[in-house]
Design a protein around this nucleic acid. Structure first.
Lengths: 335, 335
DNA sequence: TTTAAAAATACAATCGATTGTATTTTTAAA
DNA sequence: TTTAAAAATACAATCGATTGTATTTTTAAA
């Protein structure tokens, strides 16, 4: 008959001990004697008691849960960040809820709203490509809890963020191509609404300028940087004819282009040198191995999560936004 | 002063309408008149009301949330399955909580326990490599809700599972190598505790037997199938000397081996042919492109999720385990 | 042994929404 | 206009745990 799960009241009745004492015993409060605790713990085990976290969360107004919003978990970079976040959260005793925006603003809004009504304690987010309006995030901050941005920077004051210096990394990548003798370098850029891609583009431009190479707007391609976009870009490159260098804002598009170029008889790096971004595992497998920028992805996760937990737990840091810029590294390989 | 979020009681007071009516209005119950609904909805918006899902879930004993346990999200196969699950869950109005076991039994147990006390409505799980004891899952089923297994089969009765026919896929893969003229085929096998790897091994053995090729136990290597395991296997292969075929239970290890073999002057497929498993994106990038088995990963996710939702929503299907075996396909490339 | 302080336990309200039942209001038939 | 039925709304209990305060029990000092 009784197929509902046991509650503290079942323990309470079974032992004739008030439920408040049962609750305190289960939470190991010093207000309950060792003897009673043992009794209660034994009975709890016997009944197969499992705390109803919903009830507990409702009462304490704390869920010990962190929400993560990520564009897509299938990208290596993001899944590494998530692993870093989980690692840190696990140690601190937080649960983690992951939602994918699939680069859709609408879906991102829904996720934020769900996290809000599920009362997560804080939010880690890398915004979608479509996001230019931040009301949903301001709202979360005002009514939900702290937010820490990671990877993709956002033009908001009073928010913490963990990023890399995209401008500088890009500058280094482009300079590497120049040092290899490239004169006509194209750039694969992402959607400009994402500041990150804008910054990368500007790093590329700055490097060219520094070395007195004219900046040609026709050499800057813009797309979502899928593998197929890389293929399309490669077609353009063949049409241009004189290109000797590619600096791509991600490895995926770089690899798409390399595949197409190789299939069309272009030698890499003899004819065209390529530098990517992200250091995806695949970059070490493609031939020639792709020179790329390594980001501290896992570390980005642990640091972002640490910051968030600090914000959640220390009310005094409230409002203070501790942002960090992490170092990147050029991995020189054979492309 | 009042920094707490508005509740139905705030709306109730503001309009002098009982909170039960407010609740019904917000849930669009036919018991509330259009006029009152409009009034309440307007006020809710004005106050910035957001339902407290915790309270609602506690009362209704339903969270509209599905728990997913996955060994690691960073593997392409799993992130595709997750995307499939999310797709289906999103349509059906369920939220999804993802937890990574990182192949650890302990962590898996903790996740199940967390999901149980957070009262997810059901569970989708691919068990960890260490899992040989299923008490935590039996317990979840008895006290939590339905479970659907995906990818990795489990020796349990009365559980639904969505899998592929590993034996058969393996048989086909091995036969392909034999048809290419391979006589000395090694097999990269995973941890035997996972039935999936056992089945793949048996498929390999069956194919050899069918073609009267003696089965040599020394040709069966066992490990966790990381890229590095592939490298180690490749070293063994070089030591053996006469190997002309590799059938690997995943692409990752196949690629590790290929990289090492190529670096040591072995030509693929002229000297050694290779077949992998999973059709990871990387398999289409490595040179030569890797012949592999494609699994319907995304579809596995949607189907598993559909089954679970059916089990959650229709009490009559309760107990009935609808298992499915999905088709696989050999993708012949150049290795 | 008495008694004040400390320790342990019980009481009762509460978190915010939901829901079966009771009451009031409205509608429409007589 | 009266009245029964239907529609709309109010009342009150509840989900399961937590927590400030009150009460009881134990401890130890006088």
């Amino acid at each position: 008959m009784k197929n509902s799960k046991p509650t503290i009241h079942d323990i309470s009745k079974a032992l004739n001990i008030n439920s408040s004492t049962v609750s305190r015993a289960l939470n190991n409060s010093p207000r309950v004697s060792k003897k009673t605790k043992d009794l209660i713990l034994k009975k709890a085990k016997e009944l197969g008691y499992q705390k109803n976290t919903l009830a507990s969360n409702l009462r304490t107004n704390k869920t010990n849960t962190i929400g993560i919003i990520v564009p897509r978990i299938s990208r290596n970079f993001f899944s590494s960040v998530i692993s870093g976040i989980e690692e840190r959260a696990y140690i601190a005793g937080y649960n983690v809820v992951i939602g994918q925006s699939f680069e859709s603003f609408e879906r991102e809004q829904k996720l934020v709203s769900t996290f809000l009504s599920n009362r997560v304690d804080g939010l880690l987010i890398s915004i979608s490509m479509e996001t230019t309006d931040y009301d949903h995030l301001e709202n979360f901050k005002n009514n939900g809890g702290p937010i820490v941005f990671y990877d993709r920077p956002v033009p908001l004051k009073n928010f913490a963020s963990i990023t890399i210096n995209d401008f500088e990394a890009s500058f280094v990548a482009t300079q590497h191509l120049i040092s290899k003798g490239c004169k006509n370098i194209v750039h694969f850029s992402g959607i400009q609404k994402i500041a990150l891609y804008k910054n990368r583009k500007e790093g590329y431009i700055a490097a060219l300028k520094k070395h007195n190479i004219p900046v040609n707007e026709d050499y800057i391609f813009e797309a979502k940087l899928s593998e197929n976009d890389g293929v399309e870009f490669a077609k353009k490159i063949l049409k241009l004819g004189n290109i000797d260098g590619i600096y791509a804002s991600n490895d995926t598009s770089a690899i798409g282009a390399m595949q197409y170029l190789k299939a069309n008889g272009i030698r890499i790096p003899e004819d065209i040198s390529v530098v990517g971004f992200n250091n995806d595992p695949i970059s070490a497998v493609i031939e020639p191995n792709l020179t790329t920028i390594n980001q501290p992805d896992f570390e980005m996760g642990t640091i972002a999560c640490s910051q968030l937990i600090d914000l959640i737990e220390k009310k005094d840091v409230n409002g203070q936004h501790q942002s960090k810029v992490l170092p990147t590294e050029l991995i020189v390989r054979n492309s």
